[in-house]
Design a protein around this nucleic acid. Sequence first.
RNA 1: GGGCGCUUAGUUCAGGGGGAGAACGCUACCUUGACACGGUAGAGGUCGGUGGUUCAAAUCCACCAGCGCCCA
Length: 894
Amino acid sequence: MHARGVIMATSMNMDKAYDAHKAEGKWYQYWLDQGVFDAEVNPTKKPYCIVIPPPNVTGVLHMGHALDETIQDLLIRWHRMRGFEALWLPGTDHAGIATQNVVEAMLGEEGLTRHDLGREKFVQRVWAVKEEHHSQITDQLQRLGVSVDWRRERFTLDEGLSRAVREAFVRLYEEGLIYRGERMINWCVRCGTSLSDLEVNHQQRQGHLWYIRYPAPDGGPGLVVATTRPETMLGDTAVAVHPDDERYGDMIGKTVILPLMEREIPVIADDYIDPEFGTGALKVTPAHDPNDLEIGQRHNLPSVVAIDRNGKMTSDTKQYAGLDRYQCRQQVVGDLQQQGLLEKIEDYEHTVGQCQRCDTVVEPLISTQWFVKMAPLAEEGLAAVRNGAVRFVPDRWTKVYEDWLENIQDWCISRQLWWGHPIPVWYCDDCGELTCTREDPTECTHCGSRDIKQDPDVLDTWFSSALWPFSTLGWPDQTPELQYFYPTSVLVTGYDIIYFWVARMIMMGMHLCGTEPFGEVFIHGLVRDERGQKMSKSRGNAVDPLELIDEYGTDAMRFGLTQLITHGQDLTYAPDRMVGARNFCNKLWNASRLVLMNVEGAEQVNLDKADLSLADRWILSRHNRMLAELNRQLSAYNSAQAADLLYDYVWGEFCDWYLEIAKLDLYGEDAERQATVQNILRHLLSDILRALHPFMPFITEEIWQRLAPEAGSIVRQSYPEADRRWYDEPAGADVSRLQSAIVAIRSLRADLRLPPDQKVAVTVTASRAEEADMLASQQDIISLLAGVESLQVRTAPAEPPANALTAVVSGAQVHLHLAGTIHPAQEIQRLRQDIADRESQRQRSQKKLDNEEFLTKAPAEVVAKERDRIEEVEQDIAKLQGQVQVLEAMIDDE
RNA sequence: GGGCGCUUAGUUCAGGGGGAGAACGCUACCUUGACACGGUAGAGGUCGGUGGUUCAAAUCCACCAGCGCCCA
């Protein structure tokens, strides 16, 4: 038995409007206290696991994170309710260079640099900043309602993950997949570190093409080269032309004088040269351009370093030494001009590489760094996708992933930073060998010398990220968690980090664990601001989700975002969208309020189909159809369609129709009907709340606790599934016609501007007897929903009534009687407009049916549908014309 | 230069070969015992352009224009 008083209390104290903040304040702590998000190794259940894309501890979450977390929470809560052991593992990323930059900027405001503090103090400072941001991020996540297992939270620099990083590095080193070498790398002169290719953004810039003459040693004209970077000429060691270029045939093998440096450099021939570009002669600077380096290596050219790691000119540039690279450019151009060697300057658009973190133009430099040999790993990564172990949703990202892996370059993983995982390598001062071990060594493994020093560099932050799906579960130990939850189920992220992160996780997972890190990758779009700019903290256009949460509530924001999710398509930040979702929350709240106020004392009994009304059978059918489609859409990651289904069903069918109809029985005299409807409402509301819970966790818990307080948190209830036994197409067809009749009457009323409380008399002429019976049996509903006080139902053929407004709907005509208030001429005009509309429809159908090819080539069902359509339209037109005649007769009588 | 995506109602966006959809906004009427964050009835689009395929194109194909992203 239900405690009547409890139910009374629960519905009575519901506010008239839903107050999101009141409800959202209390449930998160309740969930934590109840441990409903905790997941355990549980062999009796199937695991479902998502590792969170760890937010950077640098900053705070923006709308992009809100989107990402909303999708994941939807999936996790849905699976948890479907009986999976669902683990959503939270954590944050130390975000090496990004975080270091943030803290350096803070120091800058105090007039300090990291060197003023020293490495140890600086790192301490970063940890302090990390703690601060971490608590802010945690707060944001909790406000979002994420159902993560906080007990398992990880940080990429914590002890366990550091051990995983160490193990991965040493193992790859031992396998020869990590090596140290001198290569051309991208150098950020501001950050003072090397960067991987991915950390360089290429941007179009308006620049110049300078044409510089390199004279012959004998004072002859020599040749002219074109360059976008004149300052690098100070490091030139050759001029290259295409071997087939007739203009320069006789120059090949000779030398020219490098102006300003007055060095003699050779003219060489190389297929790489594009004769169409500039003058067809390319200045070769092996130390400062990757292509020039390759040419230099092919031709054994010396390398002259002209620019140092601070972006300043080296002593090898003689009179230019010490100048900043851009000052030097001006100086070089001026000097060339003075010497008459600058032939011309053209405007030229070209791309420059910029540091992803600080936008400084990146300098290509030759440097000794640590690299991961990618080709073998890429093979494994490609295989994982090609054999179906990893599936991208939507599929088109597969090609993006494959293209990158097929053309992959080795990955520079060492960074000249202080914040990050140290490189586990020690150099011996005595024998010069290096030691790379899992435990910190005390002596050189080669000569035993104790004179060893650890590599001062740290690892690219993405190296630890690449291990995230298994390092968080305990790898390299074979923990029960790793065995149970790995491979994880799905990775949810934006397409902007497919290369940075997704691809690297797949490669590392395959290589280090032997299996893929996740079976599916759901790629969503990025959130853009109102002007279409990508939202990010560095651009300063990031919106804190808490702003929207404060304004509309978490559930509304989540639901609004969910409705905007499409497969990999970017979405524009549209706060207006949240208004609709907020309104929906209120609708759900009030519908629940109505139900809760009326289910007091209702017993939970099995519903017997024989006791059900047409409307009952209809809503149960629609309800279960919706549930089937809902689960289907969720399985396909179509969360927006899933959300729309629920929205349309709850508002458009449950509230707009069924609840209104149910009032007849709820407030009626028939106790049995009342009990039946109460049971149905209880059942439907229970399903609706559980179905909506993954989308809107707070409001559904708030209402659930009033509907079924004895059941415990809604988080752990089962997700509703369709019950096919309730499918009822005949009821659907009948209610559809019933609705048409009601809408037609309402529409006629609106045309006359009748106030709601003015009841009308209506005659319905049904085209068939069954139709008439059905409508007659539902006259209470028609009366209630269309404001009808007297309803007469009859079967055609029947004389059209005089003094009535008429509308023709599928299967019936409705006549609204208004003796004395009808203006026949006006009404005729309205009917003629209706006839004209239908006539154009008729003609369109007729045209199709007159087409021999349509009849022979179109599928039979399409043709049949067209025939039905024209038949119905013709009947409607005939009815409308009949009505016009009646009205014309009225005019004649006057 | 190569690749991917987008262009649908005033705005933000779904849809994806057989009669154009949603949210917000707008208009009219209505504070009816769940809800004015509401109800009822409406207005609003030659689905970027031009060709082609097809019995049938907003939907498929080609080209063009504009916008955006990724890779060199």
